[in-house]
Amino acid sequence: MSGKPGLREIQHRFAAAVMSPLNPEGRIRRNAAAVREAKGLVNGSGGLGSLERLEIYSRSYWFRLLESLGEDFPGTIAILGWKDFATLALAYLKECPSASFTLRDLGSRLEEWLRRHPKFAGTNQLLTLDMVQLEWAHIVAFDGAKSATLEAQDLAGLNAGTKFALHPCMSLLELHYPVDELRISVNASPEGAATASNVALEKKHRLRTGQMAGRLKRSKPKPIFVAVHRVDLNVFYRRLEQEEFRLLQALRKGQPVGRAIEAAFDGSAVPATEVPALLQTWFARWAQLGWLCRR
């Protein structure tokens, strides 16, 4: 035994140093233990000390993940402002580091984590949670698998015992605020922007300087039901009636059509005489939008 640390130990120590949270100034923490560990791991030379060399990797790690999460949750940034979003993101990433080879999955646990840590959700926690849900559903819809869907003619033999699956990349959300409209307004291009690149920069600037945060925080609550889905490669937010939402939820849970309809209209104010026409419209629309799949 040479006593030299093995590859596994070296990688553990290096990763621990790199993934250790930065100080409030965005620099690596410079305490005696950190300096000693850095000197024990890597060479310092050419005017660049061991800790400074580790700092390059550490800053790169945190800024890359922060940037990636920010790109996926622009509406959440718009609500919180960049500073509070960064605080939230760093706390989240510290507890939930990436467990996937792709950055696409980085925000997959954000909603669940935020429910456990509501103090990071700002002054209007429900609004922030609504937006986080919508934005994760957007990612799921964006690159989810294409499934074989049912056409309108496939519904001809539909009866009370029929069961459907819903398209896996379509999400059903019950929300407290009209965050679908807010998210669209966040994405809206400023008028008169000359190029796509300028649009992106302008949008980033408005988000990061908190120019939209005040307006969004004043949003009035308004319960909504939304399907986040994809049509022709584009993601859409479609508002649903409460009964329509409940029916889709019941179908997704595997209930047969008859029982799902009962659950959907239980206690509903919709007159019974109008239900058949509504159902006909909804099923036809869902088939057209590609939401219904064979179970």
Binding site: A15, Y57, R64, F101
Partner: peptide
């Protein structure tokens, strides 16, 4: 770039 299934998304 990964340790015990935790990814740094960097080229270390």
């Amino acid at each position: 770039g990964s340790v015990d299934g935790r990814y740094t998304h960097d080229l270390l």
